[in-house]
């Protein structure tokens, strides 16, 4: 089951959507900041304790997901600083490819290429948001995991 989707540019959240009555945070902004901090620390941490020595300049691939008994966080990051994540129940297999698809076909095509959107602007509340939400929903609802019950 998919609970939510977040889109970050650099360190701030530009878009968020909850599905299937997922957790609605009491302090959405605070939550988004927490997640941002988490991503930053996680990436840095994962790189530092990497058992394979990649050298000082290697960007490497950041972490892909983490799980708790309650949820799983799936992560995809573009080289240009766009970060996409899903929160799902722990039984959902890794959705990195789906996130990559959303980045390439939705974020790039509908948002980044659109001259009415300033790079780094908030998407929530932007005139483009409804169309993006629809495309996002069409996309995730087509997956078998969208409303599957947690195993």
């Amino acid at each position: 089951m998919l609970y939510s989707f977040y889109l970050y540019y650099r360190h701030y959240c530009v878009y968020h959507e909850a599905f299937n009555h997922g957790r609605v945070a009491k302090d959405l902004r605070g939550d988004q900041k927490l997640i941002s901090g988490l991503l930053f620390s996680m990436k840095s941490f994962c790189q530092k304790i990497n058992p394979k020595d990649l050298g000082p300049n290697a960007l490497g691939n950041p972490f892909r997901s983490y799980s708790t008994p309650e949820y799983k966080l799936h992560y995809f990051e573009s080289l240009s600083g766009y970060k996409l994540l899903f929160m799902t129940d722990p039984s959902v297999p890794l959705l990195r490819e789906l996130l990559s698809f959303i980045y390439g076909s939705l974020v790039v095509e509908q948002i980044i290429k659109n001259p009415t959107f300033d790079i780094g602007e908030r998407l929530t509340g932007h005139p483009l948001a409804p169309a993006f939400s629809k495309a996002l929903n069409d996309c995730v609802q087509a997956t078998p995991f969208f409303a599957s019950l947690p195993q």
Binding site: G60, L79, S80, G104, S105, V108, I119
Partner: peptide, 14 residues
């Protein structure tokens, strides 16, 4: 903006 289309469509990694 072009860079993101490049990254998405070329498949080039770091």
């Amino acid at each position: 903006r072009l860079v993101d289309e490049f990254l998405a469509k070329s498949g080039i990694g770091p």
